[in-house]
């Protein structure tokens, strides 16, 4: 059992220059623990700071204050510590059209992390691992996909490659930043199910960042609702969705379309107008 823990994370961005400089607190005192084999959903609207949390966890941003702890140990900023950290914590980006280099083949994207983290040495071993990775994300026949370039694949396939790349170093924790929001609706579930399956099979800890409450509820064990940099509500996913406590969570839930409530908005508006006329 491993844990990835965030303690009192604060991230501020400097805005502007010179005298008109100001600070934007994108993440304000956020703490949570990600356990191996569990999924935590970080839910919020754009600008809530959820992506900044993801980027900080991926060490693309350095925290202004607060700590990131892997298996109970604080992670320092040294190069070797960072490499060791990245061996365990990887990220899946939102836009599979942007997160793969158009110039390189799929194989390149997978071979590099394999080599960098010493997972496989030697041409044959690397090729074998690449093939295995592609099969793990159901891109078969692997040889065919390994030779493709990003623009020859659909969004869903690209995102699978991105997931395989994140798994390549042997990561135990995955930060998935809106992993399906750029995909066509009918292939979203396929990608989410893939993540779920991998998590189950490999006991991954997943931080699922999304604005979609429905998949957050069904896909994760715990939900944290972020609003303006702060976590305003947290709890087991069913509890947060079915019995929200914070006003913001309630607003979000009321605004989210739900197929089960067809005709709701239409009828609500009619009732409102009827009420006004009466």
């Amino acid at each position: 059992m491993g844990t990835l823990e965030v303690r009192n994370l604060v991230k501020e961005f400097r805005l502007g220059h010179g005298l008109r400089r100001s600070r934007l607190r994108a993440v304000d005192d956020v703490s949570f623990t990600l356990e191996a084999g569990k999924t935590v959903a970080l839910v919020g609207e754009s600008g809530s700071g959820k992506s900044t949390v993801a980027r900080t966890l991926a060490r693309l941003e350095t925290p202004t204050s607060g700590e990131i702890m892997l298996d109970g140990r604080s992670v320092s900023g040294s190069r070797s510590a960072l490499r060791a950290y990245r061996h365990d914590v990887q990220m899946v980006f939102q836009d599979p059209f942007a997160s793969l280099n158009p110039f390189h083949t799929v194989a390149h994207h997978l071979e590099r992390p394999l080599q960098l983290h010493g997972v496989a040495r030697g041409r044959d071993a690397v090729a074998e691992h690449t093939r295995a990775l592609l099969e793990r994300v159901s891109l078969t026949p692997a040889e065919v996909y390994a030779a493709k370039r990003p623009h020859e694949m659909s969004g869903g396939q690209r995102q699978r490659v991105a997931i395989a790349r994140a798994l390549a170093p042997g990561a135990r924790f995955l930060v998935a930043d809106e992993p399906v929001s750029m995909l066509d609706v009918s292939i979203r579930l396929g990608v989410l199910n893939l993540l779920a399956r991998l998590q189950r099979e490999e006991n991954l800890g997943v931080l699922y960042i999304t604005h979609d409450l429905a998949t957050a509820r069904h896909f994760s064990d715990e939900i944290l609702v972020m609003y303006r940099g702060e976590v305003v509500e947290r709890g087991p996913s069913d509890q947060v969705i079915l019995d929200p406590q914070h006003d913001y969570t309630k607003t979000l839930l009321a605004a989210a379309p739900d197929p089960a409530r067809h005709g709701r908005l239409r009828d609500e508006v009619r009732a409102e107008l009827a009420g006004e006329r009466a």
Binding site: Q90, A98, P102, P113, R165, A168
Partner: peptide, 26 residues
């Protein structure tokens, strides 16, 4: 700031290699 450059940072790629292998070809 392209995602694929950040992705290679996350993968642990060195700056020089990112410049030469990921950015320059494009």
């Amino acid at each position: 700031s392209r995602d694929y450059v950040e992705a290679s940072q996350v993968a642990g790629e060195r700056t020089v290699r990112i410049l030469l292998v990921e950015i320059l070809p494009n």
